[in-house]
């Protein structure tokens, strides 16, 4: 195989300019919010059962 061809394809990375990903930020914030709601709802459910140590 020609190592030259591969070398061309595998040109190394360029440093990125500025990257803005606002959509992803909103997605992960929704994730964090759902996480918190589910998590604390479960503590609430736990608080309603018999006491045990």
């Amino acid at each position: 195989m020609s190592d030259e061809k591969a070398a061309e394809v595998i040109a190394s990375e360029h440093e990125h300019e500025d990257h803005k990903t606002p959509g992803t930020m909103v997605l992960v914030l929704i994730l964090l919010a759902s996480f918190a709601i589910y998590y604390f709802a479960n503590w609430k459910a736990l608080a309603d059962v018999w006491h045990v140590r």
Binding site: H16, H19, T21, G23, T24, L27, V28, L31
Partner: peptide, 10 residues
């Protein structure tokens, strides 16, 4: 969970 979709978005 952030970096994967962010790379797609970018």
């Amino acid at each position: 969970g952030f970096t994967v979709p962010a790379s797609v978005e970018h």
